[in-house]
Design a protein around this nucleic acid. Structure first.
Lengths: 345, 345
DNA sequence: ATGAAAGCGCTAACAC
DNA sequence: GTGTTAGCGCTTTCAT
């Protein structure tokens, strides 16, 4: 139990050996140290409460043992599982993870990205980024392994990536609603500028095209990914007297806000208005009525990029570097029951 | 746009100046560099895409600009706000934050703590730790600034800390229920071994004592802080035929699981059984019925320790280093309405 | 098996 | 204003 931090040199001196030997011990190099000296060194390390300085090691080896995780907003209920997926995997591999929020803001995202570079992380995982192609392209010049989750549109921008097929997700959502006979399907998105948001819109449009229906400007709303915004959207629609019979959304949180406000204003869900969320976060089955939504396996996706990223960091081959997972429509209580529902299982 | 990472030496050489000068520029030392050279250096830095190596700087200055944040489980809905509170503040001060999960496990917590030491973080924020006093005491020997949130029981173990008064919280919860005429109040806790859990229990007992009521062994349950466990607890109680008329809990998540399962099994809340959560996370007003709960300002508390921690890191005086905030009883829809409810506002 | 020495990228006196 | 130099704590050849 000692008062200050010892360095490898001091430990060496105390043991009467060289720094090199101590170094070998703490890195437990299989060879190069006699059993007795190793034991002796280990003992004083223990006794002196010595802890090797990972930073110093990093500058010597140019590997930091840290990865960066950048996501829009940690406190958005969609992301915690992602964080766990990443941290869980990194933990097993001895990496630390620095997390930072981008707040759906390109400048902020860029700032965080550069900050990670400065900290010399061995790799970065970027979640549903809002950065434009140009910045990302330019960013590649820093040659730091980059993994993208939730942003699949361009594989040349990253070393690995995984994401749901958002246009398919948007399409499934919209077409299910349309097929059910709804004719005025509202689309409520979160923060604009997200790649996911654009893609879902694409799916929404595609579905309308197939049904030979026009996409009405007044039926697509943008705000942010919060419960609160879901509520606002409903008020907006209702107060302006805009007619609608179903709503598809860009996130479960928004959907929850929508359903809750719809009910508050005396509108029955799903009898009068059907609602479909997006993401299938845990909350969906805790909330009443249980939310119908579009599902993807977040935690697993996060673990997957984490694993892939480490492979690129370690220079191993990365099979199937860019993956897109097919989202599944999960029909619960905010959509009507129909006999063809089982087609969507 | 260049291919590899430059060092300060290379930049210096390219500019035909010394490393010291470049160093002065990147740290924008107010004096010591001529306007022209500064400009020139800045330009090549830009041009070469040079980014100073924060790690190298750290070993030179022995300040890393990183802090550690250890919490039980990132994906527990209680913690995201804490993370944001910390990251938001640290962001403004230019610190990065490494986050790690302890999973309510003392060994895991110890491991993460030591890992942070190795990474030479400038300080650590530990959330509702499960470490025992001995380990923490011993840990203090590493002399890294430590801030505790949610664990207030011993101020000598940390440099700063903030937490809700859990015994008061437990007391308020239980006594409100008791005052309302309930005689068999169940207490459903999360992971055992948490300091908070013990303290709430203390409050629960105190309330019973005041009302001259016995604390029945079979009415206190332990599991983990999840919705799922709340459901299990209800099944356990019901299946064993244990009578009860109210439930107080260790977390909102548990309470939500309880209410939801109570309803599923045909029991009216709050008519037949009243339920009170703990923490007042956002979810409480999204869930139906809105949860009655015990409230503390997490985000603000997190920001507060963050601020305090930086003060101790920077060697500034830290007024009111250890704070305990009074939790408030928030009566919503899972408790009955009573005329004295406003006393609790 | 062990040590000496150079080097990683940076900062911080101290000198000129 | 700018350069020289000596570290910071570690790893890593290369000797011995």
């Amino acid at each position: 139990m000692e008062k200050r931090k010892y360095s490898i040199a001091e430990i060496a001196q105390i043991c009467g050996v060289s720094k090199a030997t101590v170094s070998r011990v703490i890195n437990n190099s299989p060879s190069g140290v006699g059993e007795k000296t190793r034991e002796r060194v280990l003992q004083t390390i223990e006794k002196m409460n010595y802890r090797p300085n990972a930073l110093a090691r990093s500058v010597a080896t140019s590997r930091s043992g840290m990865v960066g995780l950048i996501l829009p907003d940690v406190s958005n209920f969609f992301y915690p599982k992602i964080i766990r997926g990443v941290t869980d995997y990194m933990d097993t591999k001895g990496y630390s993870v620095i997390v930072a929020n981008s707040d759906y803001n390109p400048e902020q995202e860029a700032k965080q990205l550069l900050n990670m570079i400065d900290k010399r992380v061995d790799g970065i995982i970027l979640c549903s980024g809002v950065s434009n192609r140009e910045f990302l392209t330019q960013f590649r010049n820093y040659h730091v392994p980059l993994g993208l989750v939730g942003r699949t549109f361009d594989s040349s921008l990253s070393d690995t990536g995984i994401g749901g097929d958002n246009v398919l997700g948007g399409y499934k959502s919209a077409s299910y609603l349309l097929r059910g006979g709804n004719r005025r399907v509202v689309y409520v998105e979160g923060n604009p500028g997200t790649s996911g948001s654009r893609q879902r819109m694409e799916g929404y449009c595609k579905a309308h095209r197939e049904f030979g229906l026009p996409v009405r400007e007044e039926l697509t709303l943008h705000g942010d990914y919060s419960v609160e915004y879901g509520r606002e959207a409903v008020d907006f629609l209702l107060d302006r007297g805009i007619a609608f019979d179903a709503i598809m959304t860009g996130s479960d949180l928004i959907a929850i806000g929508i359903v809750s406000q719809l009910q508050a204003r005396g509108i029955q869900v799903p009898e009068e208005v059907e609602v479909i969320g997006f993401d299938n976060i845990e909350l969906t089955t805790v909330f009443n009525p249980h939310l119908s939504t579009v599902s993807k396996p977040h935690y697993d996706m996060a673990q997957h990029v984490a694993r892939q990223l480490l492979r690129v960091i370690e220079g191993k081959p990365v099979p199937l570097a860019h993956t897109v997972v097919q989202p599944r429509l999960v029909l619960r209580e905010t959509t009507k029951k129909r006999d063809y529902d089982r087609e969507y299982l």
